[in-house]
Design a protein around this nucleic acid. Structure first.
Lengths: 202, 202
DNA sequence: AACTATACGGAGGGCTCCTCCGGTTATGCA
DNA sequence: TGCATAACCGGAGGAGCCCTCCGTATAGTT
């Protein structure tokens, strides 16, 4: 009782997960992503397991709680946005790259919203995930905006934070599943503002 | 099939609800109010029925859906705030009246938050309830603020909309059930800002 | 090929949702 | 006051979801 047992996490650090386990895990995240955006974060977890051709037990082993699953999906999407910010400029002009990235941002809105709702009750656990996420998003948006601004394609007096905030707002405001088109329109609106807006004045 | 039956709502307009029915309805709303704030909007409806000493069937007859119940509670609370805005100035000085009213506002935050979550999916039904609610709240806050300002107890350059927004923000930010004290502290903070803030400058 | 740590699947208990209908009560009328 | 009946009550019950537990199957190792 006096000496707490040493956590046995040292030996093999973290064993690399068996092949089938990894496969199932990936499939679950993939299926969950579309399920969350299509059906909302309230989908029955059994439905997700069913769609992934996996037993419910498997789902619960990988993600002991619904939050764990949502969190995993969220992480994946942040990663996706990060790599998109790196790769889009390779195949598109600076402003197109930015526009496409912004659209990608709102596409994961449903998950983000769901998370916010879920986190009303956990609030202080995993909170640094959000700090990290914000930093990543700011960097991503920043690099794209710098490129586009240097090319003279957008105005230079806007901060990444402004864009992120605007996109976040669109995500929050665009709630009904059928409002995807409206979200895209809003993104383009913001983008055009970025592009043609007057340089000075509020 | 061609001629739709006339909706028989005309004769007695809307019969005034039998005595016991009215009683149960009131009790349900009352119990639901505390249950929502104490246990969250996810409480089992059967729990609410139990606490109200009422069969589950009765609950469902009065409120066919969870939203209906939440909505009813919300309405009741808006009404309460409205009458409070009328009556508090009769027994308190202008600024005390305002402060008390502001505290009352955040107390129904839990329900409001729950509503927002629920309404993510209904969004356009009952939407004018919110418009009305906002108008009522603005009026209520406005009348109190005018009084307090005329008495020289608070600065006059603040709009009711600002206060409502601030209070709403406190509601949203104060989520965990144990954070009630912190919410009150925040309200007082806002109030003091209202009271002693410098008149000009951002 | 044999062995074992890992992972899989799904049955099952518990809980909540919501409906449905036989029994009960309040209210209007004689 | 007493009766008829419309209005209301209550809770049993089917269905779905959550989550756990454990016997079975499989990947990786020697």
């Amino acid at each position: 009782m006096t000496i707490p047992a040493v956590t046995p996490t040292s030996p093999a650090a973290v064993r690399p997960l068996r092949a089938d386990a990894q496969r199932n895990r990936d499939k679950l995240i993939e299926v969950a992503t579309t399920a969350f955006t299509d059906l909302g974060v309230d989908v029955a977890l059994e439905e997700i397991a069913r769609r992934a051709d996996v037993g419910i037990g498997t789902l619960y082993r990988h993600f002991p709680t619904r939050e764990a699953l949502v969190l995993a999906v969220y992480r994946k999407q942040i990663e996706g946005l990060e790599t998109a910010a790196r790769e889009l400029p390779l195949t598109h002009g600076p402003s197109d790259a930015l526009r496409l990235w912004m659209r990608g941002f709102v596409e994961y809105g449903a998950v983000k919203r769901g998370l916010v709702v879920l986190l009303k009750s956990m609030m202080d656990t995993e909170t640094n995930l959000f700090v990290d996420a914000r930093a990543i998003l700011l960097d991503s948006a920043g690099s794209l905006m710098t490129k586009a601004a240097e090319a003279g394609e957008i105005r230079p007096d806007f901060q990444p934070g402004d864009v992120i905030r605007a996109l976040g707002g669109i995500c929050m405001a665009t709630d009904r599943p059928d409002a995807g088109a409206s979200a895209i329109a809003l993104v383009d609106l913001v983008f055009d503002g970025l592009r043609y807006g007057a340089p000075a004045r509020s």
